[in-house]
Design a protein around this nucleic acid. Structure first.
Lengths: 209, 209
DNA sequence: GTGGGATTGTTGACAGCGTACACATGATCG
DNA sequence: CGATCATGTGTACGCTGTCAACAATCCCAC
């Protein structure tokens, strides 16, 4: 599981191994639990070896965060694929928006540690949107959200003048609920109530955009 | 400023001094920057003295978080006092809701470290709502939000059946924006754009509740 | 008042952390 | 084949949170 005895002096792909170990730790207790020495231990390597691949601990956590973002994208795409596209354009567009929100919240609930690793680590927008953090279908969460909003406009369900920046509004609402429920005051909100609140938040976004 | 030489063996009010030092550190760089040993240093006391007042570092951070919550309450109340109450009930109710949101976001912008200390530390709801974390006028942020929503219902601006749990919806939206802008991907959003987005989020809540 | 807990602060120690510096190993390419 | 450069190792330092044992002081019962 952890300390793979290796015969070669070189490791092979230490960088990847460190990120993997970091992901394990983050999954259990969030990004703060990513400890550099422990990662090297799990990779079966001396502590300082990490510095050949990361400038410092922050850089490692950043890489872990990137990987976590990819996992979020995957969760959202999964929900996206499930949409029934036989209805009219308006219904489909609303379903798309809902899918993004549901996927986002589902991931936050199922993988709180990774979720916090993905979004709680300071990074700039362009980095968050860069395509190498996309899901398996190659689309980032932000892109999917954008498509949903575009489709709402196209279907006449959202006035075009409200379209610019609407991502931020939708994102804020859903993200806020996730954070409050994860590490904030809603920490031990009843799970069923949390699910229900999630739906209501998405409804509020849909109505209020 | 920092190490107050004291003559007496006893400190006087060490607990308060530690919380104060913790607040300073949190203000600069958030709750993670609150380090127990440094707090004792600033209080002019040996490291272990802290353990007479806090079970461990977590407890200290918790106390700091409580104090930070009080500061949030104060910021919101400030905005609340500024409301022009001469209009009709509906307008006042909307203004109240807006005041809570604006105060919340203003505090997040002006005191990001304290904001994160207040809301990023795991705590349960009842603790977050307990009145000892209220502002100078004795009302917690959550209470003020509740009053605003009640007034919306009274003014016929919010269907009564949507009232229960509406706090969570409003709170989520505003909190999400704050978190994304503080330590998330919106980290370096243009300040003016951020302000504007804040207003739009509040508008979305007002429409979408 | 005086003696004896109960409080509160101090000393010393330990393991674990991130990281700097010097060194060892080995793959790669002239 | 030998030099170079990327990669991993060893040792060390200062910092952290926390434990255990000890010391000073306050305060209350006599």
């Amino acid at each position: 599981m952890s300390a793979p005895q290796r015969s070669t002096y070189r490791h092979g792909d230490l960088r990847q191994a460190l990120v993997g170990a970091g992901l394990e730790m983050a999954r259990e207790s969030g990004p703060d639990a990513v400890v550099l020495r422990e990662a090297t231990r799990r990779a079966g390597v001396s502590p300082n070896a990490a510095y050949r691949h990361f400038a410092d601990r922050t850089a490692l956590v950043g890489a872990v965060s990137d990987a976590a973002l990819g996992a979020v994208a995957e969760a959202i795409e999964e929900e996206w694929e499930r949409i029934d596209r036989r209805g009219d354009a308006a219904a489909v567009a609303h379903a798309e928006l809902e899918a993004v929100g549901i996927g986002y919240l589902r991931f936050a609930r199922d993988e709180p540690g990774l979720f916090r690793a993905a979004f709680t680590v300071p990074r700039d927008l362009e980095s968050a949107l860069s395509p190498d953090k996309a899901g398996p279908r190659g689309r980032t969460p932000f892109e999917l959200l954008g498509i949903a909003l575009d489709d709402l406009v196209a279907a006449g369900e959202l006035p075009a003048e409200r379209r610019p920046g609407a991502e931020l509004l939708a994102w804020s609402a859903v993200h806020g609920l996730a954070m409050l429920a994860l590490e904030g005051p809603l920490h031990d909100l009843d799970p069923e109530l949390a699910r229900q609140t999630g739906r209501r938040v998405i409804g509020m976004v849909d109505r209020g955009l």
